[in-house]
């Protein structure tokens, strides 16, 4: 099943993200894995909701889209002890950081700041991600950023519960 495979990869990317962060590696590498983990989580959520793989492969902004919908999931509302309205407001406060993470992907960066490939700034200087100071890293250490990371972790750990299903056989 596609959703299981995307979820397994998202979990693996998330573990690497956590290791890189603990090891205090360069922000570009840490953020690259965070972007990949969240993109795959968003796609896994779409696939588990019966969106076809063709549509998912052609989709952008999967993580932002996922966040807008996860706030509607009754199980996550119960888990966080929030009403639908509270959950909506909570998620709304996370969207700008989520979008910043999503835009780290070269496909959405429009030849600009991203976590993988060098880019050229208007003055003509070429910048390597490894030498760039990503303010997003600091945002992620703030209260809103931590709330977003916490939510991602909860969904990764409880993915099938949120879909009223038990953990599937063989799924990590």
């Amino acid at each position: 099943m596609w959703a299981e495979a995307f979820l397994a990869q998202a979990k693996s990317d998330w573990q690497i993200y956590a290791k890189l962060k603990r090891a205090n590696e360069s922000s570009c590498h840490v953020l690259h894995y965070l972007q990949m983990a969240t993109e795959k989580l968003g796609k896994a959520y779409l696939l588990a909701g019966k969106t076809t793989i063709d549509e998912v492969e052609n989709s952008h902004l999967a993580f932002t889209r996922f966040l807008r919908f996860i706030s509607r999931n009754s199980k996550i509302q119960e888990r966080l002890g929030m009403t639908a309205v509270q959950m909506r407001l909570h998620v709304k406060s996370l969207l700008s950081i989520a979008y910043a993470i999503e835009k780290l992907a070269p496909a959405l960066a429009d030849n600009g700041i991203n976590s993988e490939y060098p880019w050229k700034i208007p003055t003509g200087t070429i910048v390597a991600p490894v030498n760039y100071h990503f303010s997003l890293s600091e945002q992620l250490n703030g209260a809103t950023g931590l709330n977003l990371l916490k939510l991602v972790n909860i969904v990764l750990e409880n993915f099938w519960v949120l879909h009223d299903m038990k953990k599937r056989k063989g799924a990590k």
Partner: peptide
């Protein structure tokens, strides 16, 4: 809504209310 040119579906969990 984020335009996508497709109908992308998400699952909403069951609850006591719904």
């Amino acid at each position: 809504a984020i335009p996508s040119g497709a109908v992308m579906t998400f699952y909403v969990g069951k609850s006591k209310k719904f």
